[in-house]
């Protein structure tokens, strides 16, 4: 479409609707499954770091709350 046509574009709902459906897809993403990620390499290390961090923080919280009461 030429620029001047776009500036003065009149809405043609049937035509625009078809264009719109083609561009946006209107997909129900709930029906498309998401594949589980492969956990390896640096990602595996990151998960171990996270587990250790959570464990340390939970211990600190228990100790802290025990001191409060």
């Amino acid at each position: 479409m030429k620029i001047e046509d776009r500036i003065s574009k009149k809405i043609n709902l049937d035509e625009d609707w078809e264009d719109f459906i083609k561009e946006e897809g209107l997909i129900d993403y709930n029906k498309i499954p998401v594949q589980k990620a492969q956990i390896n390499g640096w990602v595996r290390t990151a998960f171990w770091f996270l587990r250790i961090y959570i464990l340390v923080m939970i211990v600190l919280v228990i100790v802290g709350f025990a001191r409060i009461h």
């Binding site: 479409m1 620029i3 776009r6 500036i7 574009k9 809405i11 625009d16 609707w17 264009d19 719109f20 459906i21 561009e23 946006e24 209107l26 129900d28 709930n30």
Partner: peptide, 27 residues
């Protein structure tokens, strides 16, 4: 196909159509 979609997607499509039409214009 549109009729078979859930109501939230149909309602969102109305808003998205407006965006689509806005994008067609320059200026």
């Amino acid at each position: 196909n549109l009729e078979s979609l859930p109501v939230d997607i149909k309602l969102r499509a109305v808003d998205r159509l407006k965006i689509h039409l806005m994008r067609q214009k320059y200026g």
